[in-house]
């Protein structure tokens, strides 16, 4: 029974990972984070509901960036990850897949390994802040899924990223 439950959980994680889109809660959302919409305006699930994935993505920040060929967490990245760790501990119904990415200035397989290093650095940091390792999985996309498409450092800087993608309702 325990094995079955684990198997079900595993396949759910895999299924979610398979349809992962780094920007699933992304830019199409019209919520204005800067404006204070006043008392009692929290719409469950919207970006101003602190328990929502949209809030995690937009307010906590779902991603951290890396220097060229590096997987070291910058002070800015640590601040973002502190917020992610807090959020994950408060919202224990969620698991997460941490996606590591690289810019296009590298060979394909090396970049896969580099993306894995970045995702792993994030995972280790979150675990060190108290998030259960069993709630986190890592995957690398190497240079396969750039979010910015130009071939300049301005785009490369945003592509060298690790994104924490939430998966709902899988924690038991």
């Amino acid at each position: 029974m325990k094995i079955l439950a684990r198997a079900v959980m595993l396949t759910s994680v895999l299924a979610l990972a398979a349809c992962t889109n780094p920007d699933r809660f992304g830019s199409g959302n019209d919520v204005n984070l800067g404006a204070n919409t006043g008392a009692g305006a929290i719409v469950p699930g919207s970006a101003n509901d602190p328990a929502s994935p949209a809030y995690f993505q937009q307010t906590v920040g779902d991603r951290v960036l890396f220097a060229v060929d590096q997987s070291t967490l910058t002070p800015e990245a640590r601040t973002v990850l502190d917020g992610q760790a807090n959020w994950l501990m408060q919202n224990s119904d969620y698991t997460a897949v941490i996606e590591g990415h690289a810019d296009e200035q590298g060979t394909r397989e090396y970049n896969l390994a580099l993306g894995a290093r970045r995702a792993n650095a994030v995972q280790e940091y979150l675990v060190s802040k108290g998030v259960a390792g069993s709630r986190l999985r890592v995957v690398s996309y190497g240079k396969e899924r750039p979010i910015e498409l130009c071939s300049d450092e301005a785009c490369y800087a945003k592509n060298r990223r690790a994104v924490t993608v939430l998966a709902a309702g899988l924690s038991s």
Binding site: E109, L112, A113, A116, R117, A119, N120, E124, V138, S140
Partner: peptide
């Protein structure tokens, strides 16, 4: 190549 714990 096999990657485990970030190491390949």
């Amino acid at each position: 190549s096999l990657t485990q714990g970030g190491n390949t």
